[in-house]
Each structure stands twice: as C-alpha cells, then as structure tokens.
Write a protein that binds this DNA or RNA. Structure first.
Length: 342
DNA sequence: CATCCACTGGAAGGCGAGGGCA
DNA sequence: TGCCCTCGCCTTCCAGTGGATG
C-alpha cells in the first residue's frame, strides 16, 4: 500500500504547497533582497504547532536557492540546540566549516569563523526559537551582515518577552508571517495531496481523510501521523485499503506516538518525576520531591529538580498549576494509561 | 497586621569530560 | 605526559513572593 514512505515523514518538504500561498509570498518577498545582494529584514513565522511553519520555511528557501544558488541555508532546531555554542556550531556545520571544532573551542572562535564566511549570504532558520536559552546567539547572528535569520515560534508576545533588550530592539523591525489553524477542508486537501504521492491509488477514501482531519483538529503533523500509522497498520494486515476500523485504531496511536517520543528523550531522573506525577494525578512540589527522593539512589538537589520540571513544562509533558506557594504539577492531558506502541 | 514558611528561579562557582599545546 | 582551556551540568546560596498562621 505504501509507495513512498518519505512523503509521510515529519520532515518531508513537498514540491508544492497547499493552502499557504499568501504566507509563502510574504516570506519570499521578505527574503527577496538576497537575490540582488541586499540584506533582508529578519522574518518571523508565528502560529500554533502543525500549521506548516517549518514546512513553509524550508519550501520557500528551497525555491530561493534554486533561483539564487549562492544562498546557503542552515536549519537549526533550538529544541536540541539551545545554547549559544550549539547554535553557532550548527550554522557552521551547515556551511561545512565545522571541521575541528570541539567542545573546548571558544564561542568567540566560532563567531569569528562565521564572520569570515561573508562571501555568500547565509539564511539561518531557527525553529522553535522560544526554546533557545541563550538569546545572545540571536545577537551574534544579527551582528553578521551576511546572515539573515528566519525565526519560528508559537507566540510573538512570549517570544519577545524572553529576549533581552539588546535583542528585542534589534529584531523589532522584522516581518511577521502569521499562520492560523487549518480548517477541516484545508487539512483534508493536504492529506489528499500527501496520500496521492505516498500511497497506491484508491487506498484511502475522501471521507476517511475527513475523519483524520477532524481527529487532528487542525494540526497537520498529527493528521499526517494518523495517516502514516493507518497505512502501516493496513500494510501489516495485508489490506488493500484503509478501513474505518483501521482508522479508529490508528488515531490513538498517532496521538501517543508524538508524546512517547518526547518521554523517551527524558533522562532517568526526569522520568522518575514524570512517573510520580503520572501516578499521583496532581501533586504538590514538596510531596513530589519527597517521593522522588524515596525512589532514587542518588537524588539530585531540589534546585536541579526545578530545572528538570521547567524543562518538562516546556516540552508540554506536564503543566504547573499556579505560581509559587500552592503550585501543583500534573500531566498535560490529565492522567491516562494508553499503551499504543509506535 | 506581623511573621513564618513553602516555593520559585537567578547568580556564581565547582567539577569532570574532552581536547589543545608545550 | 601534564597543564590548561571551555563546555555543560550540577550545587550552593539567596532574594522575592504571597498564602497560612498567630
């Protein structure tokens, strides 16, 4: 049934986009100075998850590179690369200048290397830039005249609040491209497009694509995930097409797969905290720390636990209800035992 | 109302890892 | 080889905040 699995992967960039023409146009207009050797304003892409921000950024830049092959593109996911060092390193890596950089290489050396690479313009896509812990990295990039940043984040207000004054004033002038949630019709069209490339013809009907789009409630990443796991299920069962039953089974799969992936990325101590919160349903910090200490051989200090917890809140795994005294922690979707495997 | 207490999160410094250099 | 560097992670210390308590 699956002809081309790549099309259903999260990082797939389609050769043409569905329903995002205005956004593409605005972004490519912003980047247009690159074509005649100018420096574009910084660009911001704002919107909730699964609305195509990353996809559109990559698509637009791929187009631009076709037109202007001297432009180099560095894609940095600030979720993983959240320090100044790692951001600079990723950019160098993308332009093949990361050889013999080691963790003892001073950050200033990385910066110097980048500033010497000014023969070709570099566009740096900073995805999930609200996860960046050292905004000095943005200041660095801004100081380099041949580097143009494209920043992707959920919400403008929160993002700017996390900047220090220096960065805020410099990035204030950028172009904002805003993305709204997809409607069911739009998402159905996107899924149809993907299905036509990824699957054999007639594998999935339009009403089923609608069901998927509904279940994904505007989130294309979830929608494509459902389609992927439904197709895999059907393949495993040797079916010729995706039935309503397959679909019903695939929907919870895809939802938990995304969450599970994040949980797998937690280190052991964070995992213990997560489990305690999961079992308790809702728990106060004091009890949480105490229970953690009971379960672990060599417990970390409370301060470190607080760092872990804020990180897990960022990951959207848990939420902190209330501020300071009287705060409680709980899982984001409430406690739920689901054993859908990836 | 004053005081206590639980909790948060910033700042600074220690430490081991991994690599450069004489 | 031994010393030095920077990194990230962790701890220690602490100020700030606001609910609870007398």
């Amino acid at each position: 049934m699956i002809v081309d699995g790549r099309v259903l992967r999260e990082d797939f960039v389609p050769s043409e986009v569905v329903h995002r023409h205005d956004e593409v146009t605005l972004l490519s207009e912003t980047l247009e100075p690159l074509v005649y050797g100018g420096r574009p304003d910084p660009a911001f892409l704002f919107g909730p998850t699964g609305v195509g921000k990353t996809c559109i950024a990559r698509y637009t830049l791929a187009q631009l590179c076709e037109q202007e092959p001297t432009v180099r593109v560095a894609y940095v996911n600030c979720w993983q690369e959240y320090t100044r060092f790692r951001v600079l390193y990723s950019v160098l890596e993308a332009v093949d200048r990361a050889v013999d950089v080691h963790r003892s290489t001073p950050k200033d050396e990385l910066f110097d290397r980048l500033s010497r690479m000014d023969d070709q313009p570099i566009v740096v896509i900073l995805d999930e830039v609200d996860q960046l812990e050292e905004t000095a990295a943005l200041y660095d990039l801004h100081r380099l005249p041949h580097v143009s940043p494209v920043l992707i984040a959920n919400r403008e207000v929160e993002l700017f609040a996390s900047f220090d004054d220096r960065v805020r004033s410099r990035l204030h002038a950028g172009t904002r491209v805003r993305f709204d949630r997809y409607g069911t019709d739009e998402l159905t069209a996107i899924l149809a497009e993907r299905a036509s490339k990824a699957l054999e013809p007639e594998s999935v009907g339009n009403s089923q694509l609608r069901t998927i789009a509904d279940a994904a409630s505007g989130d294309a990443r979830v929608g494509i995930g459902i389609l992927r796991s439904a197709a895999r299920r059907a393949d495993r069962e040797g079916a010729e097409s995706i039935t309503a039953e397959t679909l019903e089974a695939a929907i919870p799969d895809a939802r938990t797969a995304i969450r599970r992936k994040t949980i797998d990325g937690l280190i052991e101590h964070q995992r213990v905290l997560y489990d305690v919160i999961d079992e308790a349903g809702e728990i106060e910090p004091g009890d949480l720390y105490a229970e953690y200490e009971r379960r672990v051989e060599e417990p970390k200090t409370h301060r470190t636990l607080r760092n872990y917890l804020t990180k897990m809140v960022h990951y959207d795994l848990i939420e902190a209800v209330g501020e300071r005294r009287g705060r409680t922690y709980r899982l984001v979707d409430g406690p739920g035992e689901d054993d859908g495997e990836q």
